[in-house]
Simulated scan of single mutants.
Amino acid sequence: MRLMAALFLPTYPKANAPKIASNAFAVTSQVGATLHAVAINVDIPDVSNALSSYLLDLPQKIREAEATSRKGGKALLEAVAKEASRDDVTLTTQETKAPPALMGDTAAKEGRYYDLCLVGWAPDNQTARMTAEALVFGSGRPTVLLPDSEAVGALGHVVIAWDGSRVAAKAVADARPFLERASMITVVTVTDEKPLAGQDIGQRLAQGLRTRGLLAEAMSIQAGDRPIGAALQEYTLRIGGELLVMGGFGHSRVRDFVLGGATEGILSDLRLPILMSH
Rank of each mutant, 00 (worst) to 15 (best):
S22R: 14
G111S: 15
T186W: 02
A107Q: 09
L243H: 00
L215M: 12
P59M: 04
S53A: 12
D124V: 09
T34E: 15
L3F: 09
S165D: 08
D115E: 10
E234N: 13
A182K: 01
H157Q: 13
E264H: 15
K194P: 05
G73H: 00
T191Q: 13
Q203E: 15
P59D: 04
S85D: 14
V254P: 05
G213S: 11
T28E: 04
Q222C: 10
F257Y: 15
G111D: 05
L55R: 11
D163Q: 07
A75Y: 01
V172E: 00
P18Q: 10
M219K: 14
P59C: 06
G32P: 09
L3T: 05
R204N: 10
L9Y: 01
V27N: 02
D192W: 10
Y114A: 04
A50T: 12
F25E: 01
I239A: 04
K194V: 10
F25P: 01
A128Y: 00
E234A: 14
G241M: 01
F8R: 01
T186P: 04
E95R: 10
F25Q: 02
T106M: 12
R271L: 07
D105E: 15
A230I: 07
L155D: 04
G261I: 02
A161S: 13
T189R: 11
A24P: 03
A15H: 01
G208H: 06
V190Q: 05
T106C: 12
V119N: 13
L7A: 09
T68W: 10
A223Q: 03
D87R: 15
G140K: 11
E180H: 11
G250P: 03
K71R: 15
S183E: 13
A79L: 09
A173K: 08
S48H: 02
G240P: 08
L3D: 03
Q94R: 13
L259N: 05
A5H: 02
K97T: 06
T68A: 14
E83L: 01
L145V: 11
A161W: 00
D163G: 08
R212G: 12
T191Y: 09
R255Q: 14
A107L: 08
A37G: 10
L196R: 09
K71M: 12
Y114C: 03
A101L: 13
V119K: 11
D105P: 03
L3W: 08
Y54D: 10
D88Y: 04
A6D: 00
I274K: 05
M103I: 12
G120H: 11
L179Q: 02
R86V: 12
N49P: 07
L214P: 02
P147E: 03
A107P: 10
I266T: 07
T143I: 00
A230K: 14
P123M: 10
E150L: 14
T127Y: 01
A17S: 12
I201G: 06
V42T: 03
K61W: 07
K109Y: 07
R210E: 12
S268I: 02
N125W: 02
A175N: 07
D200P: 03
V158M: 08
T68N: 13
L205G: 03
D269S: 15
S183R: 11
D200F: 06
A216Y: 06
G104T: 00
G198P: 01
A107Y: 04
A39E: 00
A216E: 06
I274S: 05
K19N: 11
A231T: 01
G229T: 02
H157P: 06
V31N: 10
R112C: 04
E150G: 07
R63K: 14
E83G: 05
P13Q: 05
H251V: 15
G202F: 05
S268C: 11
